[in-house]
Amino acid sequence: MTPKPPGTPGNPEPHRPEGRWSDLERPPLNAAALRRALVRPDGLWTSLDVVEVTGSTNTDLADRARAGQAHQGTILVAEEQSAGRGRLDRHWTVPPRSGLIFSVLFEPNVPVERWGWLPLLAGVATATALSRAAGVDTALKWPNDLLVQVGDEERKAGGILAERAGEGVVIGIGLNVSQRAEELPVPDAGSLALAGAASLDRDPLLRAVLRALERWYADWTAADGDPGASRLQEAYAAGCSTLGRTVRAELPGERELIGEAVAVDGDGRLVLATKDGVQQPVGAGDIVHLRAAG
Rank of each mutant, 00 (worst) to 15 (best):
W216I: 03
D137I: 06
A83H: 08
T46Q: 15
E167W: 05
L147H: 15
V94Q: 13
V186E: 15
P27A: 07
R90W: 06
R231P: 01
D60Y: 05
L232H: 04
D49R: 15
P119F: 12
L130T: 01
P5E: 09
A165S: 09
T246Y: 04
L34M: 07
V169P: 00
D89P: 00
G268L: 01
A83I: 01
L200Y: 12
I101Y: 15
S199W: 09
E163V: 02
V104F: 08
L243A: 02
L100K: 09
L232D: 00
V39M: 05
Q149Y: 04
H289W: 10
L105V: 10
K4C: 09
A208N: 12
P95V: 02
P119R: 04
A223F: 11
L140W: 12
Q149L: 14
A235Y: 01
R245H: 08
A222P: 02
R248I: 04
W45Y: 10
A62C: 09
D226E: 04
A189M: 10
W115K: 06
A70Y: 09
N109R: 14
S191F: 14
A181G: 09
V278A: 14
G196N: 05
L210K: 02
S241K: 05
I75Y: 02
E167P: 07
W216Q: 13
D219I: 03
G159L: 09
T93Y: 04
L140I: 15
S230K: 06
W115G: 14
S131V: 05
A189T: 07
A208W: 11
G10S: 11
V110I: 15
D152Q: 14
G43C: 02
H289R: 10
G174F: 04
E183C: 12
L290E: 11
L206A: 07
A134C: 06
A165E: 01
T128Y: 09
T242I: 02
L120N: 05
P119Q: 10
G7Q: 03
Q279G: 01
R202M: 05
G283D: 10
L194C: 11
D203K: 11
H71P: 01
K141E: 10
K156Q: 13
A261L: 08
P17N: 03
R64M: 14
Y236N: 04
S82V: 06
V124H: 03
T8S: 14
G99I: 00
A181S: 14
A67F: 08
L257D: 07
T93G: 04
G285E: 00
V50S: 13
L100E: 01
D152F: 11
V262I: 15
A261C: 08
S82P: 00
T46V: 08
A65D: 02
A218L: 12
T274L: 06
Q149H: 15
V169F: 03
P17G: 09
T274S: 06
V50R: 09
R132G: 12
W92V: 00
D265Y: 12
R90G: 08
A293P: 05
P108H: 06
V124P: 00
E167T: 10
T74I: 01
A129W: 03
Y217N: 10
D23G: 05
R231K: 13
D226K: 03
D23T: 05
S230A: 11
G123D: 00
S103N: 02
R248W: 07
V110W: 09
E182A: 13
E18F: 13
D203A: 15
R269F: 11
